[in-house]
Amino acid sequence: MAEIMFWEAVRRAHDEEMTNDPNVICMGEDIGVVGGTYKATKGLYDKYGPERVIDTPISENSYTGLGIGASFLGVRPIIEIMSVNFAWLALDQIANSAAKVRYMSGGQLVAPVVVRSPGGTAHQLGAQHSARMEKVFMGVAGLRVVTPSTPKQAYGMLKSAVRCEDPVFINEHELMYNMKGEVPDEEYFHPLEGSETVREGRDVTLFGYNISVHWCLQAAEQLSQKHGIEAEVIDLYSLSPLDRQGITKSVSKTHRAVVVEEAEPIVGVGAEVMAIINEECFFELDAPPMRVSAVHVPIPYNHTMEKAAIPNAKDVVAAVLKMFGK
């Protein structure tokens, strides 16, 4: 088990899948000669050539559509969209073509594409480079949405997504590419459905995904050490479908829930998880569930304001203490 960086894990998954299957290709802006803005495809251009590691023009909707069209004939494209903010432009092809062809063709045609893209608020990138779009993709029937919180997940999810027959959107994070973590030396495939209990606890469940899992873990540590509250942390790595069973099981155990998301609260992951809790285990609750979310504003450039717009571990601790009346 070696400790490697998140980008190296993504790169390794690309490399192994491209070696395994000549139909696996990757495409996107600056992914070839340059090796990717976050190095996720570094060295692959030299290894596999321009036919399979494709530097695309800045035409997000159409190169995504091109990848989808290629997938109709058994090609397995891994499409990188440099930033989820640009994925708005590709939403037409992702939602209208990839996600719907299986259904509207009565099961005849499938689009096994992987679209991976980093979202999230990084460092003063401004309103048009700081979006969190997972809520948009989650609402599209026929599209799987996963979001890795560790290098191991990033590696194993990409490998499963490449082989899965469904279109998969992998929501990464700009701030996480240099995060280190252990990844198995042997080949590993991570599930695309379910959730993972990353810390056991009895008093409250903190639901996180992607970067917010780390805020939850930091908060759980502080709650345990300073306040004697044992928080369970659930990593919702699959956002579509959400793990109803896993959510219900944990809330039925702790009887309290806080959903932590970097995105705005409106029609978001938190809203959806709270709805599931209401539907599945309302009478298990000892307190109303809470959300820790971003402020509903376009992300400002000013650093202090930017930080104020996005939640952190302290906000999670504060929400839990409030829930416990402390």
Binding site: N23, I25, E51, R52, N61, S62, Y63, T64, G65, L66, G67, I68, G69, A70, S71, F72, L73, G74, V75, Q93, S97
Partner: peptide, 13 residues
Amino acid sequence: PLAAGIAKALQLQ
């Protein structure tokens, strides 16, 4: 773009 993608697959294969 879907047609271009089908053509890309045909070229690759």
